[in-house]
Amino acid sequence: MPDLNLLVASIISGLLIGAVYGIATVGLNLIFGVLRIVNVGHGAFIMLGAYLAFIVYTSLGLPPLLGVVAGLAVGAVLGLIIYYLVIRYLHDAPELATLLATFAIGILIQELVKAVMGPDSRGFVWNPLAAYEFEIFGYKPSSFQILAALSSLALLAFLYVVIYRTRLGLAIRAVVQDREGAMVVGIDVERIYAASFALGIMVTVASGAILAAYLQTGIHPYMGEIYTLKGFVIAVMGGLGSIPGAFIAGVLFGLFENVSYLLLAGIEGVQPLVLTRSIAFLLLLLILLVKPTGLMGR
């Protein structure tokens, strides 16, 4: 049995990164929920956000979390461009076409970033409130990581307000529930698709800037791939298309990853980092066994 202090510490750090995992998956689920398109290039948009945080901090000398704001702006423009250039022609295309198209867009973004920023791994350390750091059960979360979790919650709140408190959000919910019903009440369904896609990309790029809190040396053009994979697991776990489901599943995923790492590390002859990943899939299987549509799926 591991030290109780360590256990509590890993629960706390699991919750902190879980919030980031959650917000990094919400955009994927929003796009799937409204457009029924799986964005296979998801991780590339996260990578873009991480670079934004890096540039904001190292080139502009501003707090890296301002990369969240930059991510929202870049995501909006990029999302609209991709929607009108590619996605809108694929509504009635077979699923394979949308999978390949989003996969290609992901690769394109990776290669463009590599051309501009180079292939090297970058990163930075930022700890603005080091003076106020505190210890819980022997664990000292960095202030960047705490601010990252808070930023995730703020971003989730932003999305909540857009979807539940605005005319656009009402229209998005209407399109999700009945596309033809939305048409007959006079909603321009095409525009709602564009807006939802852009909104999903906005949140995803912004979440990459938040994730930078965990990437002290790990920002490189191909870093997104693992988050595409994690994103799919979390999205299915939470229920495809469900935004609260994605966030809750993200938190659970972070928690499970951290705690299982700690528990596995206590077993002799086991490589915890390798096994942690398979444990996460085990969690997915268990959840799907009990509820095949995911935690909040319909």
Binding site: L170, A171, R173, A174, Q177, E180, G181, V184, V185, G186
Partner: peptide, 20 residues
């Protein structure tokens, strides 16, 4: 087949009718 918005309330459905 009506094509209502099943998860929205009666009033939200009506307000959506005035969407334009």
């Amino acid at each position: 087949g009506r094509h209502l918005f099943p998860e929205l309330t009666v009033e939200e459905n009506l307000l959506l009718g005035a969407y334009t």
